[in-house]
Amino acid sequence: MTAQAFDRALIGRRSEPSVVRVDTAQLKFFAKATDQRDPVYFDEAAARAAGHRAIPVPPTFAFSLSNAAPEQAAYGLVQVRADVRYLLHAEQGFNHYATLYAEDEVTITTQILDLYEKKGGALRFIAQRTDLANKAGILCIECDSTFVLRAPAPGA
């Protein structure tokens, strides 16, 4: 099966915003699942003692917040009708402007930055940027994701 070439007209397309709340229990669960040993990230008292107003959203959890609104995390993948069986994460970056905290309300939008192919179309790349803004409308984190769709094995 030959994968379809990307429709490059999709580059630059932006999602409608989604609003999610940073759930304190989810942050504690994330800390447990990642073997986090710094109590600032799972104990409110430790967070306050360290000068935070609540448990801070740890680096990388911005990506999980966008996953809480799948229409954002999967925006580029849905737009190109990706077959997620062949999906891999190629690159991930974060630009930090302000810290988000437990129970903050976050507005999320996603834009397709680029669509390109390598190895004669055997590897197809989807690059998107997800913006996370706080309730005041201030951009706190940019979350840059590049996904790759590998070609299915022959006969698959």
Binding site: P59, L88, H89, F94, H96
Partner: peptide, 19 residues
């Protein structure tokens, strides 16, 4: 964890990785 064990989270300007 490597970063925040030593560095204040608010001092992380940006970071990126390739898988």
């Amino acid at each position: 964890h490597l970063l925040t064990s030593t560095i204040r989270q608010e001092d992380i300007v940006s970071w990126k990785v390739r898988f």
